Structures are given as C-alpha cells and as structure tokens.
Amino acid sequence: MLEGKVKWSNSEKGFGFIEVEGQDDVFVHFSAIQGEGFKTLEEGQAVSFEIVEGNRGPQAANVTKEA
C-alpha cells in the first residue's frame, strides 16, 4: 500500500488526484474509495491505496482514508 494526500477532488464529477511524494500524481475515481455511504475525499486528506493500470494509465484502487 502507498500513502499520499488528496491533491484535489471533485465530488460532482466523481474523481480527483492523490499526491505521492517523489512520484507523479495518481488519478482516483470515487468507485475506488472503500467504505459505506457517500464516498468523498477532502483536499489534503491522508489516504492509503494501491496502484492499478486503468484505461488511461495508472490509477488508485482500494483507497482508504487515514484517521
């Protein structure tokens, strides 16, 4: 699992980007967020995730919010 911080997200469009130190930003779709209820990410929020190869390149999977 990698750790990063949410660079920005748009809940209306359903995606955002995660900033990882020393690496390119990672695309995240809201379907990759683990948990119940409305899935949102806040700018600056710490997250853990895996990287998978998506249709348009690397993207985050199994995203969990850190406490």
Score class of each variant (00 low, 15 high):
residue 1 M to T: 12
residue 1 M to G: 07
residue 1 M to E: 06
residue 1 M to H: 10
residue 1 M to A: 09
residue 1 M to K: 15
residue 2 L to M: 11
residue 2 L to R: 10
residue 2 L to E: 05
residue 3 E to W: 15
residue 3 E to F: 15
residue 3 E to I: 15
residue 3 E to S: 15
residue 3 E to L: 14
residue 3 E to G: 09
residue 4 G to M: 03
residue 4 G to C: 06
residue 4 G to L: 04
residue 4 G to F: 03
residue 4 G to Y: 03
residue 4 G to P: 00
residue 5 K to W: 12
residue 5 K to G: 04
residue 5 K to L: 10
residue 5 K to Y: 12
residue 5 K to Q: 08
residue 6 V to T: 02
residue 6 V to I: 12
residue 6 V to N: 02
residue 6 V to C: 07
residue 6 V to H: 03
residue 7 K to R: 08
residue 7 K to C: 09
residue 7 K to D: 04
residue 7 K to T: 06
residue 7 K to L: 03
residue 8 W to D: 02
residue 8 W to Q: 00
residue 8 W to G: 01
residue 8 W to N: 02
residue 9 S to P: 03
residue 9 S to Y: 15
residue 10 N to H: 08
residue 10 N to Q: 06
residue 10 N to L: 07
residue 10 N to Y: 06
residue 11 S to Y: 12
residue 11 S to G: 09
residue 12 E to D: 09
residue 12 E to F: 11
residue 12 E to C: 14
residue 12 E to G: 09
residue 12 E to K: 14
residue 12 E to N: 10
residue 13 K to L: 11
residue 13 K to D: 05
residue 13 K to N: 06
residue 13 K to H: 08
residue 13 K to R: 11
residue 13 K to Q: 08
residue 13 K to C: 12
residue 14 G to P: 03
residue 14 G to H: 11
residue 14 G to C: 13
residue 15 F to Y: 14
residue 15 F to I: 08
residue 15 F to C: 05
residue 15 F to L: 05
residue 16 G to K: 00
residue 16 G to N: 02
residue 16 G to H: 02
residue 16 G to I: 04
residue 16 G to T: 02
residue 16 G to Y: 09
residue 16 G to L: 04
residue 16 G to V: 03
residue 16 G to A: 13
residue 17 F to K: 02
residue 17 F to G: 00
residue 17 F to H: 02
residue 17 F to P: 00
residue 17 F to S: 01
residue 17 F to I: 04
residue 17 F to R: 00
residue 17 F to A: 02
residue 18 I to L: 07
residue 18 I to G: 01
residue 18 I to M: 01
residue 18 I to K: 00
residue 19 E to V: 10
residue 19 E to Q: 13
residue 19 E to I: 07
residue 19 E to G: 09
residue 19 E to N: 06
residue 19 E to T: 11
residue 20 V to G: 01
residue 20 V to A: 05
residue 20 V to L: 10
residue 20 V to P: 00
residue 21 E to I: 11
residue 21 E to Y: 12
residue 21 E to W: 12
residue 21 E to D: 11
residue 21 E to C: 14
residue 22 G to F: 05
residue 22 G to Y: 05
residue 22 G to D: 07
residue 22 G to A: 05
residue 22 G to C: 09
residue 23 Q to V: 08
residue 23 Q to T: 08
residue 24 D to A: 14
residue 24 D to C: 14
residue 24 D to N: 13
residue 24 D to H: 10
residue 24 D to E: 12
residue 24 D to M: 10
residue 24 D to L: 10
residue 25 D to I: 05
residue 25 D to Q: 04
residue 25 D to T: 05
residue 25 D to G: 04
residue 25 D to N: 06
residue 26 V to R: 01
residue 26 V to C: 05
residue 26 V to E: 00
residue 26 V to A: 02
residue 27 F to G: 00
residue 27 F to Y: 08
residue 27 F to H: 01
residue 27 F to N: 01
residue 27 F to D: 01
residue 28 V to A: 05
residue 28 V to H: 02
residue 28 V to K: 00
residue 28 V to L: 06
residue 28 V to R: 00
residue 29 H to E: 05
residue 29 H to R: 03
residue 29 H to C: 12
residue 29 H to I: 06
residue 29 H to Y: 06
residue 30 F to N: 04
residue 30 F to K: 04
residue 30 F to D: 02
residue 30 F to E: 03
residue 31 S to I: 04
residue 31 S to P: 02
residue 31 S to Y: 04
residue 31 S to N: 07
residue 31 S to Q: 05
residue 32 A to Y: 06
residue 32 A to V: 07
residue 32 A to S: 09
residue 32 A to H: 06
residue 32 A to Q: 09
residue 32 A to E: 07
residue 33 I to F: 08
residue 33 I to L: 12
residue 33 I to S: 02
residue 33 I to W: 05
residue 33 I to K: 00
residue 33 I to A: 04
residue 34 Q to N: 13
residue 34 Q to D: 07
residue 34 Q to I: 15
residue 35 G to S: 08
residue 35 G to I: 05
residue 35 G to Q: 08
residue 35 G to R: 00
residue 35 G to Y: 06
residue 35 G to H: 07
residue 36 E to N: 11
residue 36 E to T: 12
residue 36 E to Y: 09
residue 36 E to A: 11
residue 37 G to K: 09
residue 37 G to H: 08
residue 37 G to D: 10
residue 38 F to K: 12
residue 38 F to W: 11
residue 38 F to Y: 12
residue 38 F to G: 10
residue 38 F to N: 13
residue 39 K to M: 10
residue 39 K to Q: 14
residue 39 K to E: 09
residue 39 K to F: 08
residue 40 T to S: 11
residue 40 T to E: 08
residue 40 T to N: 10
residue 40 T to C: 14
residue 40 T to A: 09
residue 40 T to I: 11
residue 41 L to D: 01
residue 41 L to E: 01
residue 41 L to C: 05
residue 41 L to V: 07
residue 41 L to G: 00
residue 42 E to D: 10
residue 42 E to V: 12
residue 42 E to I: 13
residue 42 E to A: 11
residue 42 E to W: 12
residue 43 E to Y: 14
residue 43 E to V: 15
residue 43 E to Q: 14
residue 43 E to W: 14
residue 44 G to I: 01
residue 44 G to E: 03
residue 44 G to L: 02
residue 44 G to C: 07
residue 44 G to Y: 03
residue 45 Q to C: 10
residue 45 Q to K: 04
residue 45 Q to G: 06
residue 45 Q to W: 10
residue 45 Q to P: 00
residue 46 A to Q: 12
residue 46 A to K: 14
residue 46 A to R: 15
residue 48 S to Y: 13
residue 48 S to C: 14
residue 48 S to V: 13
residue 48 S to G: 05
residue 48 S to D: 03
residue 48 S to F: 13
residue 49 F to Q: 01
residue 49 F to P: 00
residue 49 F to W: 00
residue 49 F to K: 00
residue 50 E to R: 11
residue 50 E to L: 12
residue 50 E to K: 09
residue 50 E to Q: 14
residue 51 I to T: 03
residue 51 I to V: 09
residue 51 I to A: 02
residue 51 I to C: 07
residue 51 I to E: 02
residue 51 I to M: 08
residue 52 V to M: 08
residue 52 V to Y: 08
residue 52 V to S: 06
residue 52 V to D: 02
residue 52 V to Q: 08
residue 52 V to P: 01
residue 52 V to N: 04
residue 53 E to A: 12
residue 53 E to D: 10
residue 53 E to V: 14
residue 54 G to W: 06
residue 54 G to H: 06
residue 54 G to A: 05
residue 54 G to E: 03
residue 54 G to K: 05
residue 54 G to T: 13
residue 54 G to C: 09
residue 54 G to Q: 04
residue 55 N to F: 15
residue 55 N to Q: 12
residue 55 N to K: 14
residue 55 N to E: 12
residue 56 R to T: 07
residue 56 R to M: 08
residue 57 G to D: 02
residue 57 G to N: 01
residue 57 G to C: 06
residue 58 P to L: 10
residue 58 P to F: 09
residue 58 P to A: 07
residue 58 P to Y: 09
residue 58 P to S: 07
residue 58 P to W: 09
residue 59 Q to R: 09
residue 59 Q to Y: 11
residue 59 Q to G: 02
residue 59 Q to K: 07
residue 59 Q to C: 09
residue 59 Q to D: 01
residue 59 Q to M: 11
residue 60 A to C: 04
residue 60 A to I: 02
residue 60 A to F: 01
residue 60 A to Y: 02
residue 60 A to S: 02
residue 60 A to D: 02
residue 60 A to W: 00
residue 60 A to Q: 00
residue 60 A to V: 03
residue 61 A to P: 00
residue 61 A to R: 07
residue 61 A to C: 11
residue 61 A to S: 10
residue 61 A to I: 13
residue 61 A to T: 09
residue 62 N to H: 09
residue 62 N to M: 07
residue 62 N to S: 08
residue 62 N to D: 01
residue 62 N to I: 03
residue 63 V to W: 00
residue 63 V to E: 04
residue 63 V to N: 00
residue 63 V to T: 02
residue 64 T to Y: 13
residue 64 T to C: 11
residue 64 T to F: 13
residue 65 K to L: 15
residue 65 K to N: 07
residue 65 K to V: 15
residue 65 K to Q: 09
residue 65 K to P: 12
residue 66 E to A: 14
residue 66 E to W: 13
residue 66 E to Q: 15
residue 67 A to R: 09
